[in-house]
Write a protein that binds this DNA or RNA. Structure first.
Length: 124
DNA sequence: CAAGTGACGATGC
DNA sequence: AGCATCGCCACTT
């Protein structure tokens, strides 16, 4: 549809952050995803870190649900600004996401899977 | 143009 | 189970 301006950059390159934002926007409300997952969706396998940097660069009031991105452990990653962690956690809890006593979100329950690999699990 | 700055993840012990 | 180390790359000054 779009006049593909530069399809060459299969991974990384200018505009990478924007791709990451688009991937994050795909996370539905009440669900969470890991930095690694978002990186893959954005076409940056192994670029989990870049995802974090991109989210960090988000302006206030952006429509990107950055709060739905957690680390591989399902926990809110510690940031430089104290208190900001609770902000993310509260934002998620307002969506229905539940944290356990360890401050982690059970990804097996809230982790969003764009390709829901059915067949396994779902036993109970 | 060069250097500094970050919201991660897997591995080795 | 916790800590240290390496790899990763765009953006800002």
């Amino acid at each position: 549809m779009l006049p593909s301006v530069a399809p060459t950059r299969a991974r990384s390159g200018p505009g990478t952050y924007e791709r990451i934002y688009r991937a994050v926007r795909r996370i539905p409300r009440g669900r969470v995803a890991t930095y690694g997952q978002v990186a893959v969706w954005a076409g940056l396998p192994g670029g989990a870190r870049q995802v974090g940097y991109a989210l960090n660069a988000l302006p206030h009031g952006s429509d990107v649900p950055w709060q739905r991105v957690l680390n591989a452990r399902g926990a809110v990653s510690p940031r430089a600004v104290p208190g900001a962690e609770s902000v993310q956690r509260l934002a998620l809890e307002r969506e229905g996401v539940v944290f356990d006593a360890r401050g982690r979100v059970p990804l097996e329950r809230f982790g969003w899977r764009p390709r829901a690999t059915r067949g396994a699990g779902a036993r109970g």
